[in-house]
Amino acid sequence: MTAAAPLIFDIRRYALDDGPGIRSTVFLKGCNLRCLWCHNPESIDPQPEIGFYPRDCINCGDCVEACPVSACQLENPARIDRGKCTRCGDCVKVCPGQALRLLGCFYAVDELLEIIIRDRMFYEVSGGGVTLSGGEPTLFMDYCAAVLGPLQDLGLHTAIQTNGLFDWREFKEKVLPLLDLVMLDVKLADGNLHREYTGRDNALVWANLEGLLKEKPDAALPRIPLIPGFTATKGNLEAISRRLQDLGVRKCALLPYNPTWFSKAESLGKPIDVRLSPHLMTPGEVAACREIFSRAELIIH
């Protein structure tokens, strides 16, 4: 079952690393995993959320007055008591500095298409296009299909970023034909660890990757997020690379760890697991990971 109308929490234009060329990436809200290292903390909950960005706050106190349940308090450095907040959005409406923002907006398909198509020339000249990301966009297959169809008709390059947990038949039928590129995240080779850190087993991920490789091999791009201490371990990466080789995969992509999302989590009042490193990976660490995959003769994207 897929929900009909997702919320969108960001449309990033002039994106350069979500596929070839110059692109727009659309982030759908809602995810069926709970990765401990989720770099898009605002993407998990399918409901609208309120973010607080202290840098933009001018301490005017308007939000305190506006809040019907007294969840907003100036003394609170995080501004909102998440326990009390009903996400009514009243504070957002009055905030002059846009320090309080509502994350997650509904866009009718036409509305979204209009925004995407504004940058059409940049896609055309660069061989770029549109990437649907999340969250997990396959939770909203009908919506995805409705957006991707017209884009494909315009001859634009289309891509999706998925965690691989979707119903294969529905995906193959509705979405896959409309895609030029499927970036499918492979996080952990071990099923138990996968369950522990993301909340679900990984068997479906591998199965869907296999299906994809059979059905549309040119469109498949497995991606491995490198999370120090979790996925970026020698054992895990070697296991993944072996398995990819077995599946006949020729190329894959590595996503080096980047903790800049910590501030996003803070804005939403979400805890950050203490085991996560606050540092970027060193070029040496990244190179060591790459080495594992190039040894397995996988071309790294």
Partner: peptide, 9 residues
């Protein structure tokens, strides 16, 4: 990238 940006503009 620069040349694509120029062309798109």
């Amino acid at each position: 990238l620069l040349s694509q940006t120029i062309q798109g503009y």
